[in-house]
Nucleic acid binder design. Structure first.
Lengths: 146, 146
DNA sequence: GACGACGTTGACGTTAACGTAAAGTGGTTG
DNA sequence: CAACCACTTTACGTTAACGTCAACGTCGTC
């Protein structure tokens, strides 16, 4: 998990007021700094279901958003299976039966707990980092003086 | 990544005012809800270096803290290799040369960026969860009325 | 002194999440 | 038309992080 910056938000809509609705796999890959292989793998795992023009995949806004959510979920440590579960339930929502919906709410509560824990972890970890950094700077100081 | 609760903080110091300094591998495992195998693996990967009484491992407070930090790091998505890198540099700090220390500060800055990004991710994810939950509740409502 | 609980070291197995290489298709461009 | 992309499928390879199993040693106790 190294540093990077790109988040690939909504495109800036260069000319007209609602266009550029589709993407190739390569475009999407560059946008999010993943490989096409990764995107195909996500499809194979049921996280994406792009349109097909013949053999080649055509991605729309919806697919892009899904990919974005998927990658965000990954950064938060969710497995692809977990992410898929939520996505599937979300898609099945309109006609979902009560049991399914309650199950979904359970999962969401679980994720929420997870988020809370991570927030706490982050706070603690930041303190640790502060501490280590302080010590490191002190040592550096002394090295400079001698 | 499922839900659980134990964090295994400092023991409550039952009788005297500074005791219970060592742990067996099994105790530690139960404390943090991992298997002994996991703990041995972390040692093999250079994250722990417990004392040995003959063959058997003896863990002190220091080791327990390290394990705690390691697991926290894991929950935040760091690899064992990354965690080890930080631990090693931390240990080598007192006599670390300037280059090493600067490298450490770089790594820390990197982790910090990571934390920031995760905070943002969590905020965004929480909104998504809110949204999904709302819709789910709406659908449930309608199911109840009809 | 047999038994069970706990510890030890190998060594091989497993899963998730891709990487990589091979071999083919379809379009456009000099 | 040949060369070059970008895309496709199939399939085997790889890495991290353990799980699992075998075979053994060491206590305490019944």
């Amino acid at each position: 998990m190294s540093t990077s910056k790109a988040e690939a938000t909504t495109p800036v809509n260069g000319s007209l007021t609602r266009q550029r609705r589709t993407y190739s796999i390569g475009e999407l890959a560059r946008m999010f700094e993943v490989t096409p292989r990764t995107i195909r793998f996500y499809e194979q795992e049921g996280l994406l279901a792009p349109e097909r023009r013949g053999q080649t995949r055509i991605y729309h806004e919806k697919d892009r958003v899904r990919l974005k959510l998927t990658l965000r979920g990954k950064r938060l440590g969710f497995s692809l299976a977990e992410i898929r579960e939520v996505i599937e339930m979300y898609d099945a929502m309109p006609d979902g039966n009560a049991r399914q919906l309650k199950r979904l709410l359970e999962i969401l509560a679980d994720k929420r707990n997870n988020m809370e824990r991570q927030l706490e972890d982050i706070r603690l970890m930041q303190r640790e980092l502060d501490d280590v950094e302080m010590r490191a700077r002190e040592v550096l100081e002394r090295l400079g003086q001698d």
